[in-house]
C-alpha cells in the first residue's frame, strides 16, 4: 500500500508540475505576442508619466512629448500610464501603482495629470472611503502588484481575460487603433483600406453625448472627497519626484456642457489647487476646434500628436521660465 501510495503521489506531482509548466510556458509565449491593450504599461519603470483616464490615454503621445522636450532638464522617457474604461480615477490604488512605476531615485521627472470631473467621481453606491477603495481594488491597477516586469506573467494571470491559445495564433487587431510600447493608444482616422468619415465622427460624437447622459441616469455619480483627497496626495508625492502639470484635455462641446452641468466650478477649483500646490494648470477646455476628437471625448491620432506638441511646448516654457526665476533668485 505504501509503495502504491508513493507512486500515486509521484504521479500527481508529475501531473501538477506538468500543469504548472505548461501554464507558465504558454503564458510566456503569449507575452511574446500582442497580449492586451494595456499590457505595455505594465512592463517597465519610467521617470516621467502621463496620468489620468481614457482621454489622457488617447491624447498624449509620449514620443512627441520627449521629442519636443528634448534638451529640457528632465528625466526621460515618458510613458502613458492613463487607462481606458475608468480604470484609473485618482485614489489610493492609482497612487500606489504610480509610485511603483517611478524609479526610486527619480527627482527630475515630469508628471502630466489629466483632469476632468470623471477623475474625481464615484458611483452613488460607493459611500465610504472603504467602499471606493474596494471598488478601485477590483480595477486592473488594484489587482496588480507588479507593474514593471517583462514578461509580466502576473498581468497574464490577473488581467488577460481570454484563453492562452490566442498566443499561438495571430491576434486580431483593430484596424483603427495602434498600441504603442510607450502606453499610448493611437486612434487613426486613415489606414489602408479604411477611412473614418466626418459622418462617422459626427455620429459617434452624438452617441457619446447621449451615452453619457444615459449613463448618468442609470449609474448616478457624485464628486468624491476621497478622490479629491488622494488627488492632492498624488500631487504631493509626485512633487518629490519632479514637476507636476495639471491638464484639462479638449473635448466636444456637448460633452463639455454635460461636465459643466455636473461640476460648474471645476476649472476654478483646479486653478485653486494648482495655485495652492505651486503647479501649473493647463486648461484646454475651449480648444475643441484646434484638437478634434473622434468620438466627442477622445482625440484622434493627428489631434493627439498636435496636442502633445502644444502641451510639451507649454511645459518647456514653464521649465525655462522657472529656470530663469531660479537663476535670478
Amino acid at each position: 500500500m505504501r509503495r502504491e501510495l508513493a507512486i500515486f503521489v509521484f504521479k500527481i506531482a508529475i501531473l501538477a508540475l506538468g500543469l504548472v509548466g505548461t501554464y507558465l510556458f504558454f503564458s510566456w509565449n503569449l507575452t511574446r505576442t500582442f497580449v492586451a491593450d494595456d499590457y505595455s504599461k505594465f512592463t517597465h519603470q519610467t521617470p516621467s508619466l502621463v496620468l489620468g483616464l481614457s482621454r489622457a490615454h488617447y491624447a498624449f503621445d509620449p514620443a512627441t512629448l520627449d521629442s519636443v522636450l528634448e534638451g529640457a532638464n528632465y528625466e526621460r522617457p515618458f510613458q502613458n500610464f492613463a487607462f481606458e474604461k475608468s480604470q484609473s480615477p485618482y485614489g489610493e490604488v492609482y497612487l500606489g501603482a504610480i509610485l511603483k512605476k517611478i524609479p526610486e531615485n527619480t527627482s527630475g521627472g515630469i508628471f502630466i495629470m489629466g483632469v476632468s470631473p470623471g477623475s474625481f467621481s464615484a458611483s452613488n453606491r460607493l459611500v465610504t472611503p472603504e467602499d471606493i477603495f474596494e471598488f478601485d481594488s477590483k480595477t486592473m491597477l488594484g489587482k496588480m502588484s507588479d507593474y514593471n516586469s517583462d514578461p509580466n506573467l502576473e498581468f497574464v494571470r490577473k488581467c488577460f481575460g481570454r484563453s492562452l491559445y490566442k498566443g499561438i495564433f495571430p491576434q486580431e487587431h483593430r484596424i483603427s487603433t495602434v498600441f504603442h510600447d510607450n502606453g499610448w493608444e493611437e486612434f487613426r482616422l486613415y489606414a489602408p483600406g479604411y477611412t473614418i468619415s466626418q459622418a462617422d465622427i459626427d455620429f459617434w460624437q452624438e452617441e457619446t453625448v447621449t451615452g453619457y447622459t444615459k449613463l448618468a441616469a442609470v449609474i448616478p455619480e457624485h464628486v468624491s472627497d476621497y478622490r479629491l483627497e488622494w488627488f492632492s496626495r498624488t500631487i504631493d508625492s509626485l512633487q518629490h519626484k519632479g514637476r507636476v502639470f495639471l491638464v484639462r484635455i479638449p473635448m466636444h462641446r456637448g460633452v463639455l456642457a454635460l461636465e459643466d452641468g455636473v461640476w460648474p466650478s471645476f476649472d476654478r477649483e483646479m486653478d485653486s489647487i494648482a495655485r495652492l500646490k505651486h503647479i501649473t494648470y493647463l486648461n484646454y477646455r475651449n480648444r475643441s476646434e484646434d484638437f478634434e476628437t473622434y468620438d466627442g471625448s477622445h482625440l484622434h491620432s493627428e489631434s493627439a500628436k498636435a496636442f502633445s506638441r502644444d502641451v510639451a511646448r507649454a511645459i518647456r516654457d514653464q521649465i525655462e521660465q522657472r529656470a530663469v526665476v531660479e537663476y535670478l533668485d
Partner: peptide, 10 residues
C-alpha cells in the same frame, strides 16, 4: 492539461 491551460477563459 493542454486543453485546460490553452482553452480556459481567464
Amino acid at each position: 492539461i493542454l486543453v485546460i491551460v490553452l482553452f480556459s477563459v481567464n
